[in-house]
């Protein structure tokens, strides 16, 4: 066992995601308190790995690791973790990290905390679960733990640096994989680009049904804004995926973000929290969005939208 912290970084199209730097920065702070090293782990090629402020960076490249492949990445990370016996393994609670963290936990019988937003030097973790409504403080048992951390939880600057990476071959044979990468999928074109809008009216589950989208669209037009939404609206088929704001959607930073019936789960906040003016209308007075919005109203969104239309 060591007191090292392993950070599983993530990259796409030659660029590391912000969460990778955030985790490396936090790992440095924790490693220094624990007397270990912060080790950034870069899996896959096509990327300059010498960009972290880590104490060491391990770069594992192999033809089978060219694109994210949960099976191949899982095997490599499992072998590396077994070899290094770190005190903590950090993942992002992201599209890629979510495929690996819980899997590794079950595979190795090591505790795993998800939705992690805070980590103390005693490795107590604060997890923002239940749609952002509750914060759990949990202590992992044993000598090793896994933390899957929400993006935006730690400052990214602390993780940026120029530590020279050590290139190593894959520690496991990747010859007979069941999962094969076929091709990349690009975003559908042809719709409004919500990332370039200065004003957005955004609807959530509270909009209730496809038949009510028209009202929201009308309000958006009256405000010279575009219509966006949270994930459940897309999953229900009420708006196309091109309009989705949040972790699995798009990140937006408009001058105005008027939210109708969105409760403000952490996944949605990831996509819009830096909007300049956030106004939220929701019937649930305890909706987490009211801790983030600049202005809020506990009211029926339909009545508010109709009344606004009369005034515009």
């Amino acid at each position: 066992m060591s007191n090292d912290i392993l950070v599983i970084t993530e990259h796409m199209d030659g660029k590391f995601s912000d969460v990778s730097f955030e985790l490396v920065g936090k790992a440095k702070e924790l490693a220094s308190a624990l007397g270990g090293q912060a080790v950034a782990v870069v899996v896959g090629g096509g990327v300059d790995a010498n960009v972290f402020a880590s104490d060491a960076t391990i770069h594992i490249d192999d033809a089978a690791l060219g694109q994210f492949n949960p099976e191949a990445y899982g095997k490599v990370i499992e072998a590396l973790v077994k070899e290094k016996s770190p005190r903590l393994v950090m993942f992002g609670w992201t599209a890629t990290g979510m495929d690996l963290a819980a899997w590794l936990s079950a595979k190795l019988g090591v505790p795993c905390a998800a939705y992690v937003k805070e980590i103390g030097s005693d490795l107590m973790m604060g997890c923002q679960a239940y749609g952002g409504k509750l914060m759990a403080e949990v202590a992992p048992e044993g000598d090793m733990a896994i933390a899957a951390c929400l993006a935006g939880s730690f400052p990214a600057e602390a993780g940026q640096g120029s530590t020279a990476a050590t290139a190593t071959a894959s520690p496991v044979d990747l010859g007979s994989l069941k999962v094969k990468f076929v091709e990349a999928i690009k975003p559908e074109g042809g719709d409004v680009d919500i990332t370039s809008q200065t004003k957005l009216v955004s609807v959530g589950r509270g909009i209730g049904g496809k038949e009510n989208i028209e009202l929201a669209e009308e309000l958006a037009q009256a405000l010279d804004a575009a219509l966006s939404c949270s994930r459940p609206v897309v999953d229900a088929g009420w708006l196309p995926r091109t309009r989705q704001v949040g972790k699995s959607g798009l990140k937006v930073k408009p001058k105005m973000y008027l939210m109708l019936g969105i409760s403000g789960a952490p996944e949605h906040l990831e996509g819009m929290k830096s909007a300049e003016l956030i106004i939220a209308v929701n019937t649930d007075k305890k909706a987490p969005i009211f801790n983030v919005a600049h202005y809020g109203a506990t009211a029926d969104l339909f009545e508010v939208a109709e009344a606004m239309l009369e005034l515009l």
């Binding site: 019988g109 090591v110 505790p111 795993c112 905390a113 107590m124 923002q128 952002g132 409504k133 509750l134 914060m135 759990a136 403080e137 949990v138 202590a139 992992p140 048992e141 044993g142 733990a145 956030i278 939220a280 209308v281 305890k286 987490p288 969005i289 009211f290 801790n291 983030v292 919005a293 600049h294 202005y295 809020g296 109203a297 506990t298 009211a299 029926d300 009545e303 508010v304 939208a305 109709e306 009344a307 606004m308 009369e310 005034l311």
Partner: peptide
């Protein structure tokens, strides 16, 4: 899970929206 729960509580809000009170018409 190997996790011991030490505490569970609503998140400590770092800020709160300025609430607009009144009827839906007044809010609008």
């Amino acid at each position: 899970s190997g996790l011991t729960f030490k505490k569970m509580a609503p998140p400590v809000a770092t800020g709160h929206a300025e609430m607009i009170d009144g009827s839906p018409k007044e809010v609008a």
